[in-house]
Computed example of a mutant assay.
Amino acid sequence: MAKPSVKKAILALAILLPASVFISLLIGSAQIDAAELWAVLTLQQDVSALDDTIIWQIRLPRLLCAMLVGAGLAISGAVLQNVSRNPLADPYLFGLMAGAGLGATLVSVVLPVGQFSLAIGAFVGALFAVALVFAACSGQHWRKMEVTLLAGVAVSFMLSAISSFILYFAEPFAANRIMFWLMGSLSRSDWQSFTLLLPVTVLVIVLALALRRQLDALLLGDESARTLGVNTPALRLTLLLATALLTAVIVSQCGGIAFVGLMIPHIARRLFGVTSVPLLLGSALCGALFLIWVDTMARTVLPQQEIPLGVITSLLGSVFFLIIMRRQALR
């Protein structure tokens, strides 16, 4: 049962989230004031067609996708960190993001690109990364999550190198487009992206919440979890595949956005504790808020230009990673 203070913190974030969406909708190259925005959102008749298009076709779907991407990456990181009991676990470091990026790159270069085909290619690539990680940890070694994590880092570098090799020989304009997308961008987000991201994100959150007791048991150690009736290998494999699916869909829609899955669960763990329900809900809310404001920064800091999201999150995340790693080394 969550403490009253934790419940209040989650409620505060839940209130802050729509407020952040409303404020972010006001920010952009086209000036729209709060009264005009409210009129558009409440479907009043006396609004300009331009304002209606900007809000409903450009800014709102992009912001909703930012919320889902941030929540999805944060949930994936929280799940991976709990099942591995490794505070440095993250979809990037398990090779999932690199595998999904490779699959999406191949689809972009070889096949006619559509939202669904990109998602399928990214998912196949993420599954390929998972297969490589488990193959590298053949025998009983995959049960040791520190070995699995190191294998994921190696697989991530290998698959990223293959993606770069493919892009080197691709047509220059297509290569530039794919490279910008792989650095992470929500510029292509629309309502179709939202309809792809929403069910998968909700599915993984519901699955993780349904397995909350097993996840909490893992925090006690594998031996203790097994004495409580938890099938630890099956649980880890199920959750790894679920995070692979979610990561793949995210990469297919907005490319690689690094370190969100590393940073946000640590912040949520400080605020809400380590038990699964408050951690997962807190991670989802913090991740959504974080990416809303990172995306707002990315599209407004430079005039007439957009900074790739992955550049900002990598800059923040690399510093965060070094701090966490130093703390772990000093223990």
Results as ranks from 00 to 15, higher is better:
2 A>R: 06
4 P>D: 03
5 S>W: 15
5 S>D: 09
9 A>E: 00
14 A>K: 04
15 I>D: 01
19 A>L: 15
22 F>Y: 12
30 A>G: 09
41 L>T: 04
43 L>M: 13
50 L>Y: 14
57 Q>K: 12
59 R>Q: 02
63 L>H: 01
73 L>G: 02
77 G>T: 06
78 A>M: 09
78 A>N: 10
81 Q>N: 11
87 P>S: 11
93 L>I: 12
98 A>Y: 00
99 G>V: 01
106 L>M: 15
118 L>N: 01
121 G>M: 04
132 L>T: 05
137 C>N: 12
143 R>W: 06
143 R>P: 13
152 G>P: 01
162 I>R: 05
176 N>A: 12
185 S>Q: 04
187 S>K: 07
193 S>K: 02
198 L>V: 12
199 P>A: 05
211 L>R: 14
214 Q>C: 00
218 L>P: 13
219 L>T: 10
222 D>T: 08
226 R>P: 10
230 V>K: 02
232 T>F: 00
239 L>R: 00
241 L>C: 09
253 Q>F: 02
254 C>Q: 08
256 G>F: 07
264 I>N: 03
283 S>C: 10
283 S>I: 00
284 A>R: 07
284 A>Y: 09
297 M>F: 15
300 T>I: 04
305 Q>D: 10
311 V>Q: 04
314 S>A: 15
315 L>Q: 13
318 S>G: 15
